[in-house]
Amino acid sequence: MARKAQPAGGYATGKDVAQRAGVSTITVSRVFNPAWEGKIRPETVERVRQVAQELNYRPNGVARSLVNRRTNIIAVVIGQSAGFFYSEILTDLVRRIQKSGRQALVFSLDLYDDVARILEQVAQHRVDAVVVTSSALRTDVMRPLEDMGMPVILFKRSAEQTNISGIWCDERQGALLAADCLLRTGCRQIGIVAHPHGGTGRAQAFAEELARQNITPVQTVWGDYSYESGQQAARKLLTDHQLDAIFCEEDTMAMACLDVAREEFGLRVPDDLAIIGFDNNTAAALPAYNITTVAHPIVDMLDALMEAIEQVTCDPHTPVRRQFEMSLLERSTTK
């Protein structure tokens, strides 16, 4: 069937589609609203979409936002040094946001960025809510987030001491699992690779658990969750000390430590050196690494995050808070 000409005067409107399809403009709006999927007769949906295709009609998101007082845009703020783990989360989160009929607007917050400037950019887009990942958080970010005047949801960072929403894991409990794994296998000379500004509390909780067993970490070396920083940390630890274990705050750095230990120092893992990571990213589970790690229930957390987005956009004054437990995945880098 030949495509009919577009209405004179520019873009086709919902009214044009409604007139040609023989339905109301409300029906046209509902056909293109994901919230109404499955609630309209299939033959009506097919007829409306066919006419829309003929007229090259696209729903006007700007007009819809003026009516609803919502932009249907969710801002996602992520740190640059986020590693594989956050890349995987970001892909899934954007897909989920789009499936809900919204759009994601991603902002990158570098360690040295002016926090106020980045948050001002977010505010200029009049987004319906802001999701901030823990990789983007420094201590000085919390107060500006609380003062933004729009719904903010922390993801993978506790919101207990704030007046904003949050979906997070008990990362201290996760760090205790890692410490217990090393201690019960006889490790005593333990090094730590941690992020100096991560704010997760993982390394601190890990060291505190060692202290309860009268063990002091041999040394803590800083890394920014990148592979290169993990390499540098491993070289320093293994050059300066005779270790039997390394705890890394993030899996990418643990992967680097494993490569350096085996390839540069000729160590057998886990016989000579045990290594534990954190986050359970996909790469760490590859056969070449198969790293013991502490895992988040990511699917459940993302489900909870989407529920939180729905709730805070309807009721921005009531914070939503959910905490999840973590689990230890024992693989081939520990005994």
Rank of each mutant, 00 (worst) to 15 (best):
Q103T: 11
P144C: 08
Q50T: 13
G38P: 05
R202C: 07
E43L: 12
A123W: 11
L267M: 12
E146V: 12
A104L: 09
R69T: 08
A284P: 00
R322A: 08
G14T: 03
G174H: 06
E54W: 15
V94M: 10
R143M: 13
P217E: 11
V130Q: 01
Q98D: 13
R69V: 03
L154Q: 08
I192S: 02
Q19K: 13
M253D: 08
P196I: 01
S226K: 01
T139S: 15
N33E: 08
T13D: 02
P7F: 05
D147E: 15
F278H: 04
P297W: 13
E54R: 12
D92Y: 02
I276P: 00
F32T: 01
I97H: 01
D110V: 05
T91W: 07
L145P: 04
E307H: 13
T162G: 05
D113T: 03
A136W: 10
P144E: 05
A233Y: 02
N56Q: 15
R64H: 10
F155R: 08
L183S: 02
L273P: 00
R202S: 06
S24Y: 05
F278E: 00
R321P: 01
A35Q: 12
W36K: 11
L111N: 06
R49Q: 15
Q6V: 15
G9V: 07
G149M: 11
Q323F: 03
I246F: 01
T313P: 12
A12C: 09
V17A: 00
A5K: 08
K236Q: 15
I246S: 04
Q323P: 00
F107V: 11
T293P: 04
R41H: 12
G198T: 02
A129W: 06
G191M: 03
S108Y: 10
L137M: 15
V269S: 03
D147A: 14
E160T: 13
P7Q: 00
G277I: 03
Y225W: 15
P42Y: 03
V132F: 00
I73A: 11
F247Q: 11
D147V: 09
T27Y: 04
V221M: 01
V299W: 05
F84R: 13
H197D: 08
K4M: 08
V193L: 12
G199T: 03
V31R: 02
V131D: 03
I190C: 02
D147S: 14
A18P: 04
M301C: 14
A8I: 12
T185H: 05
A256F: 06
A63N: 10
R3L: 14
E88T: 09
K236P: 03
A304K: 09
A18I: 07
I118M: 04
R49C: 10
A136R: 10
H125C: 08
M306Q: 14
E208K: 07
S134G: 13
S229R: 00
P34A: 10
A5F: 15
R117I: 11
R96E: 07
C169P: 06
P7E: 00
V260Y: 01
